[in-house]
Amino acid sequence: MLTSVVPKLPFINKQQTVNFYVNQLGFTLRSDYGDYLIMDKDGVELHFFSFPTIVPAKSDFMIYLRVDSDIESLFEKCRQGSSAVKIITRLESKPWGQKEFAIADPNGTCLTFGEAYS
């Protein structure tokens, strides 16, 4: 029986990745095994593996993160955060009942955040 999904995402520069997820998105670094990291926030766990030759502009890594409230504040925090936060799509309501926006992390991974609306 499946119980959860834990995305594994690449990182080029470990410190940049830790700074981005901890300082910009509020994750906590739980484990650092050198070339493998584990972070979490609000019950969401992400794993990261060293991939120093990945080209961010050609990265095909994408994840969708559900938000249960206040996506507007999260978007504003990302929008007004450091220049490390690259906005891919602005916050908008989608026909499938989600308010969404997307950003790219320093490694080129697309992170889409979505909150249900009625």
Rank of each mutant, 00 (worst) to 15 (best):
F61V: 01
D32T: 14
F49N: 13
V85I: 15
K8M: 14
R90V: 07
F51C: 15
T109I: 05
K58W: 01
K58T: 03
N19V: 01
W96L: 03
M62K: 09
V67N: 11
R66E: 08
D42K: 12
K77H: 13
A57R: 11
S69P: 00
L25W: 04
V55W: 04
L9D: 00
D105N: 10
P56H: 02
I63T: 11
A84L: 09
F113R: 03
F48R: 05
G114Y: 14
V85L: 00
M62G: 02
R79T: 10
S31I: 14
S59K: 02
E92H: 08
N19L: 04
V44S: 05
S93H: 05
E45A: 08
E115F: 12
I63F: 00
Q15K: 00
F101P: 03
G114S: 12
G108Q: 03
S83V: 12
F20C: 09
D32K: 11
M62C: 08
P106M: 04
D60V: 08
Y117A: 02
I12P: 02
Y64C: 04
R90W: 13
S118I: 11
T109K: 01
D32V: 10
V5Q: 11
D60A: 01
Y117W: 15
F61P: 00
R66C: 00
K86V: 05
